[in-house]
Write a protein that binds this DNA or RNA. Structure first.
Length: 272
DNA sequence: GATGCGTGGCT
DNA sequence: TAGCCAAGCAT
């Protein structure tokens, strides 16, 4: 849930999930669509699908217990190098090189003297992080947590709070006069993209209790002569995007391909 | 290595 | 207010 999503937005959903599915087996015992539905508006709903798949893998291959090694964690769906290291370190106390966006930014500034880390995680960054990690297990966990928090709370991407930083006297970027970034990060396009349409379609499917006919996506409900049950609001939002028919087709096809939707009785629904 | 993939708070 | 950006991953 925390992948690319701020902590404060994750917390309420996380609590709901743990109450509803206290164990991996509990989640694995329900349809994947239920995971997507209860994902709410966290974004990137593929993560819900993969979390469900990970729960199934944990149930089947790990006797229902979340594995405690980096390698086993990495093999789970939706778990990459960051998440595998973070779980091994923070849940199991292991010494792992945890590198998230916060840690990358702190290292870039404090050590490398640049305003921002490289556009993508590099081998050099991993080597640097590994070289800074304390040798013993417990201190390494504290180090990972501390650097991550420093980045999240003080050494932020925009308007870093250098005045409150406990290590500002060690900061290479500050010592260099806070030079501007050497490149301009290109923002993620949104308006008019397939991505926006996909999001609007999934919003409809989340609320739908019956398969949604393709015509519902392509035409105004008023033109169809019948009222959609319970999905009027997200459907209206989708139509307001006024996307081209082929764009809608791409979005629907993409959702099918990703397993976020399936065809049933001539309509689209979340995977049952 | 580059791209596609959500959503909403903050400035 | 339009854009930035957030505990990344898979392909």
């Amino acid at each position: 849930m925390l992948q690319q999503t701020p902590v404060v937005r994750v917390l309420p959903v996380w609590h709901e999930w743990l109450e509803r599915w206290p164990t991996p087996a509990g989640l694995a015992g329900e349809p994947a669509g239920e995971a997507v539905r209860s994902w709410g508006r966290l974004g990137y709903p593929r993560r819900a699908l993969r979390l469900h798949a990970a729960a199934a893998a944990i149930t089947e291959k790990h006797k229902g217990k979340v594995p405690d090694t980096y390698t086993e964690l990495l093999a789970l769906p939706g778990v990459g190098s960051y998440t595998a290291a973070a779980v091994a370190a923070f849940a199991y106390g292991r010494r792992e090189t945890v590198v998230d966006t916060n840690i990358r930014r702190v290292h870039a500034r404090l050590v490398s003297g640049t305003a921002l880390p490289a556009p993508a995680l590099t081998a050099a960054e991993m080597r640097l992080a590994a070289s800074l990690l304390p040798a013993a297990d417990a201190p390494s966990v504290r180090w990972n947590a501390a650097v991550m928090e420093l980045g999240a709370l003080l050494c932020t991407a925009r308007a870093p709070k250098c005045g409150a930083c406990p290590v500002n006297d060690l900061c290479a970027w500050r010592a260099a006069g806070e030079p501007p970034p050497s490149y301009i990060p290109k923002g993620q396009a949104w308006h008019g993209t397939d991505r926006q349409v996909r999001g609007a379609v999934v919003a409809v499917l989340r609320l739908a209790e019956e398969p949604v006919p393709a015509e519902m996506f392509h035409h105004e409900p008023a033109d169809l002569g019948f009222a959609p049950a319970g999905i009027g609001v997200p459907l209206a939002a989708l139509h307001r995007l006024n996307s081209a028919p082929e764009q809608l087709e791409r979005a629907l096809a993409g959702l099918l391909a990703d397993g976020l939707a399936e065809l049933h009785d001539g309509g689209y629904r979340l995977p049952a």
